[in-house]
Amino acid sequence: MVSAKRNQSATVMFILLGFSEYPDLQVPLFLVFLAIYVVTVVGNLGMIVIIRCNPKLHTPMYFFLSHLSFVDFCYSTIITPKLLEILVVEDRTISFMGCIMQFSFAVTCVVTEMFMLAVMAYDRFVAICNPLLYTVVMSQKLCTLLVTISYSWGLFSCVVFTYSLLILSFCEINIINNILCEYSAILSASFSDKHLTEVILFSLSNFNTFCTLIIILTSYLFICITVTKMPSTSGRCKAFSTCASHLTAVTVFFGTILCLYCVPSSKSSWLMIRVSTVFCTVVIPMLNPLIYSLRNKDVKETFRKLMVIKIFSC
């Protein structure tokens, strides 16, 4: 059995079609995605540097944000370079192990980001609903524990999903009508009995999605109740403004996920699936640092100071 799996990993190949049916758009798409990737790398790594450099940003909220930026950077780096490659070369193949590894790293990042967003919602709940106990409740030990759990559950989900694919058998050449090695596309290429794998996919993916959504929605339900009871209008505005960036990031991320995987009508168009996949894997990692930086005075002020120091040092 082990020998058969080793032989499969050596002979099985996948072909990523990407946007191959639009040959005139290959170069423009390459330039667009390259620009997005550069902005993503600079934005997310810059966010991490800014948070580390400014002592005022050494708070739980920015601690979680720095890890969110790290996850977005990793997620984009896993997907975008291969996407850029298949846009400019005729050989669109990827090995079995290469495909499985891309999927494994990607699912780790997606699940980790889900739970990181849920953790950030809980952080906002404590900050607004229990401001006097915030520093006590959101201790460094708890923050580290919550981040560790997010990464650990991402790795656990990766192991489960990856194992459910490794037990399947594939033809030597398999076509994936997408830009990356996505779970359902790999699954559909297999000729094995897929019942167990489909049960695992349905159970774990729905658990991850709805568990994190319940945490987020519950947190914001209590936040709304607390804010509506505030006597001053300025206090309510300030409370909502601290949640605006996170709410925007959550809406964009989960809106795309639900549209891509939970709406049956979206499966009727392969082009729509690929566009949604691009938005989820390439665009969202770029948007998150922009969302948080554009609405945050401390981040913008630190960025300006770093730029001034850089200019004078040159």
Rank of each mutant, 00 (worst) to 15 (best):
P28H: 00
S219E: 01
E198S: 12
T108H: 11
V308T: 09
V275R: 04
S139Y: 12
F222M: 02
P55Q: 07
R304W: 10
F210K: 08
V160T: 02
I223Y: 00
C171W: 15
V107M: 05
T11Q: 15
S157E: 07
L221H: 08
S157H: 11
V110E: 12
F254V: 00
M47L: 13
I225E: 01
P285F: 05
S234A: 13
S169D: 09
S205M: 04
L180M: 15
V160K: 06
V42Q: 09
T277V: 10
T242F: 02
Y134K: 14
F14N: 14
C243V: 01
Y292R: 03
F156L: 05
K300P: 05
S104E: 13
S20A: 14
M13P: 14
L221S: 07
K238Q: 03
S219C: 04
W270E: 03
T228P: 05
M286P: 07
F210V: 12
S95Y: 08
M1R: 03
M13S: 15
Y151C: 03
F63C: 15
I179V: 08
V2P: 00
Y22V: 08
T40E: 09
M61N: 14
I223R: 00
F253Q: 04
F19N: 08
V71S: 08
L166R: 06
I216Y: 01
L25F: 13
E172F: 14
L201D: 06
T108K: 06
L155A: 12
N174F: 01
W270I: 06
L306T: 05
K305Q: 11
M1F: 05
L260W: 04
L155K: 11
Y134L: 10
P131A: 01
P55I: 06
D91T: 01
L16G: 05
N130L: 15
F19Y: 13
S241F: 02
G255L: 01
S157V: 11
G235Q: 08
Y261K: 00
S20W: 14
C74S: 12
L290Y: 14
